[in-house]
């Protein structure tokens, strides 16, 4: 699969996802993850850093892409947008861990799609610890809908909240997680 067709597929999935197609959006995130992983592993390897740190970055980039997906314009190419976010998260991470940024090579947006790393890896972020730090209402909504696998209506019945309240709590919970993750993992 060359870069052009990868771009077309990602753009199509993202556009469908933005329209509310949850399956397409999940496929988009999964496919993008392979590219992000290869990109971050490659950049970090040059600086002598390992796979777990790369996976931290993958998840930081994913949640950044997710919470800022409203800044993607479906009429524009997808790769430059995703690449700009990936590079932003990389530079932010390196700045926080005090690496000289001058050593980074000059890149192009298409570099993001050049490689794929499909291994399912683990980051140093601990989901339970992160969830413990957000408000109970949001945590419960996320617990029911995602971790326990309940449907929105089942979660609504069990918690006594309305269906839209559940969705709003999940959404706010995600933003809270994004904020925690942007503060970096405690080291």
């Amino acid at each position: 699969m060359n870069v052009k067709s990868a771009e077309r597929e990602l753009q199509a999935l993202m556009t469908e996802g933005l329209r509310g197609d949850a399956a397409a959006y999940k496929a988009l995130l999964s496919k993008l993850t392979g590219h992000l992983r290869a990109y971050f592993k490659g950049r970090l390897a040059r600086l002598g850093r390992g796979a777990v740190e790369a996976e931290d970055l993958v998840q930081e980039a994913l949640i950044g892409i997710h919470t800022r997906r409203h800044t993607y314009d479906p009429s524009q190419p997808f790769t430059p947008w995703a690449y700009a976010i990936a590079r932003y998260k990389l530079l932010d991470h390196l700045r926080r861990t005090r690496v000289s940024i001058k050593d980074l090579p000059i890149e192009e947006a298409d570099d993001l799609l050049a490689h794929d790393d499909l291994s399912d890896a683990e980051s140093a972020y601990d989901l339970q610890m992160l969830l413990a730090r957000i408000a109970p209402k949001m945590r419960q909504a996320i617990q029911y809908v995602k971790l326990d696998g309940l449907s929105v209506s089942e979660a609504a019945a069990r918690s006594g909240m309305s269906e839209s309240a559940i969705k709003v709590s999940v959404h706010r919970g995600m933003k809270a997680l994004a904020l925690l993750i942007s503060k970096g993992r405690p080291s």
């Binding site: 949850a22 959006y25 999940k26 995130l29 999964s30 993850t33 992983r37 996976e55 993958v58 998840q59 994913l62 949640i63 997710h66 399912d120 890896a121 683990e122 980051s123 972020y125 601990d126 989901l127 996320i142 809908v145 995602k146 999940v170 995600m174 997680l177």
Partner: peptide, 12 residues
């Protein structure tokens, strides 16, 4: 956490 699990979370 595993990224696949994280993606599940985000797409909810």
């Amino acid at each position: 956490m595993k990224t696949s699990q994280f993606i599940d979370l985000l797409s909810s």
